[in-house]
Structure formats: structure tokens, C-alpha cells
Design a protein around this nucleic acid. Structure first.
Lengths: 254, 254
DNA sequence: CGTAATTTTGACGCGCGTCAAAGCTTGTGG
DNA sequence: CCACAAGCTTTGACGCGCGTCAAAATTACG
């Protein structure tokens, strides 16, 4: 089914690659045109997901990883009492599903926050390709490493910080992630509701609401609905990274 | 330097492998004796670390990943104000350093909590070997996936829960991790101080202390110093996994 | 344009951090 | 083997941050 002849040049590949969010797999290392072509052959387009549709559900068997092209996806787990815990937001250019490799089943559900299109990358093929193309294996390992690191970061970020620090942190996180994709770092549209944000951050929605008000009063941001503009990134950074968090570390030895 | 001839049989390999904590790399997939031998060749023993000694420091260039053979290691980051944030405890049989693959530098420091011996697995060699032995590549990916998942778990675990739920969760986590290694699941010695535990969980040491008292009064555990005995695992599980955490999810759509 | 879902606002209470000081370990040197 | 520090761990008192409940205001959507 992939036996057709094709003529490609590197720049169109790069472009297609980037367009369908494979750039994360391509960029870190040098893959030549042929490699990228092979990689592209295994990538599948799917019809866009509508808001609320599931990309996969927890416990589904693991077949593929996914790259978000446009839109946004949230991943969730169900706590025992049947309540939804949001574990991550995935924006264009980001990859999800890696956490399923180990057990062979998805540990969380993935649901579209708005109309969203993704690329599907069947993992069997990818893994096979990775043994053939050393650059690709490296690339894969690197992405997974980054994933681990990102999570660690969020872990500290969210676990041990006050509500306003948490909000500052995610706002800056979105700012960076949009910025990396070439969008504005200071004005963007949050794809999720306040309730989802607060759930993600482990706060009550009421607290989230009050925070948004406070942040606006302090001139840190302006917000109307989901449209956000960061007015004072410096101050946000001060909030997010450190100053005023002399939490509970003074008790440790050297 | 690795050119010497050796006669091996699979069971001694397996044993050595498990002893030096490579079992995580071997077990998930089938590697034949020769593969394991190659793997073993690149593993390096190091002299044991004494309590407080660093295995590596944040920002150190990434050379190798490490498997804990005996003892325990904590990984930490420094927040801007120079305070230590504990990001993980690593017990025998566990692997650390994977989070450095992406950037090429260790994002955190690793320090021995007690006398600790580790295996060093130079990453260049491992990566090369992984291209030669498909089973090994799979194994690596799987471990990294597990790592991602574990972190996710802890993220929810710690971020959005009350102090006693957090304590129940880590106690059960240690119970499982010791149990997996063949030690008792109900009586064990915590390798870290209360202050370190509380730092890790994002709590004040005073709170930790009060929690230990409460848990003992309620008959959940008995503790004297670092020796812990879990008396009522069922109740701990109830605390850890759900009941009574109707936190902040009732606000979400469908 | 009306109904449902979301967001906002206010009042109130509890959990947990903070400060301060009193036991307990642990290790070191006489 | 004991004495004396220097950590740790525990205890109590107190206050603030944020969750909870309830209801109004706003927005989204058919």
C-alpha cells in the first residue's frame, strides 16, 4: 500500500513534516530526505475531531502515537469516584500517547477541546523504522526524555505552589508553547474552560475566577472570556519562578 | 578493553543482570544470552557512594544512566532562591538519569541518602547497542514510557490531594517498590528523613510529624524512627485511591 | 430569544503553613 | 563509656489561603 513511486525534495518534506507536527521527530537530528519520506509514509491523516470527541479512551489498546496539527486535546484519568482529572493539555505540534508504550494500553483518555486534527503514527511501524534509521531512534528517545522532564517540571510547579504561582506558571507555559509555534507569546486564546484549567491545576473554579480578577487588577493580564493578553510577563515570571516561595526547605541538611 | 573471551550461561547472566539492576532492561523483552553479555560489558561498577555524596549534579553533562543496586538516591532541583526541591527517590532496581537525554545535561542533582551502590550505563554505548538489538530498543522505550506514566501518576497523586492522602500514597508506593524487589511490603525502613519526605510531598515537616502521629493513633501504621510497619493496608488504600476526594471535578461538562 | 452551562461574587470554615520552643537522635571527642 | 553538640522530630498556638455552599450575572447555543 506504500509502494507507489514518489519524487520529493527535502524542503517540501520538511514543510509537510512540520505541518503535520512531525517536526518534533525530524528536527532534533539529521534525517535525510529518504528517511523523512519513509517516516511520512507511515503517518496517517484522520478526519478532524469535533469538540468533545475522543481520540482514544483509557484502557484502549496502544496502536499509535499522535501529533496535534491544529486544535487542542486534553488527557484525563478517572479517579475511583468517577471524577475526571485532567492530566495534560496538548497543543499543535505536540505529541501524545507516549505514556502507553509501557503497558500497551492507554493510561488516560484523550478528548478534543475544540475542532482538532491530528496525525496518527502507528507505533509498530515507527519502532521498526527506528531500528533502521539511527537518527530516528535518537529522536524518539529524546522526545521521551523531554516528556519526562516536562512532567517533572510541572510536578514541582503545581504540587508545591500557591494558587497564583500556579496560574502564572501555566500562562507562561502556554505563552511559550504558542510562541514556539510562531504565534504571539502575549495574546492567545485558551482552548480550555476555566473549570478545566482549575481542575488541571488542582484548584476550585471559584479560586480560578478570583485569580483572573486579581491578575487583571494587578495589571498582569487582560482577559475577556478565553482571550488572554499577557501585559506584564516580567511580573508573571517573578511570580512563577521563585521570588516569595520560601516554602518548606529550610529544614533540610546541607 | 572489552575484547576478552568469556564463557557465560544464561542464568548467571540473568542473575548478574538482576543483581546490578539491569533487570529492568532485560526482563520486558527477550534478549538472548549474547545480547545480555554485550549489555553487561558496557555496564560499569563504581565504588559505593557515601551518604550525602553526589552521583551527579544539575547541569553536569549527560554521559550515562544509572541503576541503583543498593541504598537509595534522591534527585533534587534548586529553586531560584537556592532552596532544594526533592523531585524523586530512587530505590534499588530503579533507573535514573533518563531525563537528561533530551538536553544532554542533567536537569537535577542526584545525591545518596545512605551508603549506595549503583551501576553506570554509558549512554552512547547503550544507544549504539540498541540499534543492533531490537529487543533492547523496545526495552528502553518501554522504561521511558513507564517513567512518564509514573510521573503522571505522582503528579495527580501529590498535586491535588490532602496531606493524609499524600502520605498514604507514598507509603503504598514504597510498599510496592520494596515488595517488587522481594522485601516485605508491610515493614520497611524509609531511607529518607521526615523533612525530606515532607519536602518531596510539598508539606511542612511539622505537618508530616502530626500525620505520622495521627496515622498511628488510627492504627494505620506503627513507626519508630525510620522503621515503618503498615498495619492496615486496606485503610491506607482507601485513603490513597479515592474515597472522600470529591474535590473539584463536579464543575466539568459531561 | 430562551434555556442551560459557565463564570462570578460573597460569606464562612477548615487544613495546613508558620513561628517558637521543647524533646530526641546521632555522632564526636575526651 | 559518657558528655555535649548539632541535627532532627515533635508539640502547641495562631493565622491565612483556598475549598465549600449558595446564588446572581454572564455567556454560549439551539
Amino acid at each position: 500500500m506504500a509502494a507507489k513511486q514518489r519524487v520529493v525534495n527535502l524542503s517540501t518534506i520538511r514543510q509537510a513534516c512540520s505541518e503535520c507536527s512531525l517536526f518534533q521527530l525530524c528536527l532534533p537530528v539529521t534525517l535525510d530526505a529518504e528517511d523523512v519520506e519513509q517516516l511520512e509514509d507511515i503517518v496517517q491523516r484522520r478526519r478532524p475531531l469535533r469538540r468533545g470527541e475522543y481520540l482514544y479512551r483509557a484502557e484502549d489498546p496502544f496502536r499509535a502515537i499522535y501529533a496535534v496539527r491544529a486544535g487542542a486535546i486534553k488527557t484525563t484519568v478517572l479517579s475511583i469516584n468517577g471524577e475526571e482529572q485532567i492530566t495534560g493539555f496538548h497543543l499543535p505540534g505536540e505529541i501524545l500517547g507516549l505514556d502507553a508504550i509501557n503497558s500497551g494500553r492507554h493510561p488516560c483518555s484523550a478528548q478534543a477541546l475544540e475542532t482538532t486534527s491530528v496525525c496518527e503514527i502507528p507505533f509498530d511501524n515507527l519502532e521498526y523504522l527506528a531500528t533502521k534509521i539511527p537518527g530516528l531512534q535518537q529522536s524518539l528517545l529524546r522526545i521521551m526524555s523531554k516528556e519526562i522532564f516536562k512532567d517533572h517540571e510541572l510536578l514541582y510547579a503545581v504540587a508545591k505552589r500557591s494558587a497564583d504561582e500556579r496560574l502564572a506558571i501555566v500562562l507562561l507555559s502556554f505563552s511559550n508553547r504558542f510562541g514556539r509555534r510562531g504565534l504571539s507569546r502575549t495574546r492567545f486564546r485558551l482552548p480550555m474552560s476555566r473549570a478545566e484549567l482549575s481542575n488541571y491545576l488542582g484548584l476550585a473554579p471559584e479560586t480560578m475566577s478570583r485569580l483572573f480578577r486579581r491578575f487583571q487588577e494587578q495589571g498582569l493580564i487582560t482577559a475577556s472570556g478565553k482571550e488572554i493578553a499577557l501585559q506584564d510577563i516580567g511580573a508573571l515570571r517573578d511570580l512563577a519562578y521563585g521570588y516569595g516561595c520560601e516554602a518548606n526547605q529550610r529544614h533540610l541538611r546541607s
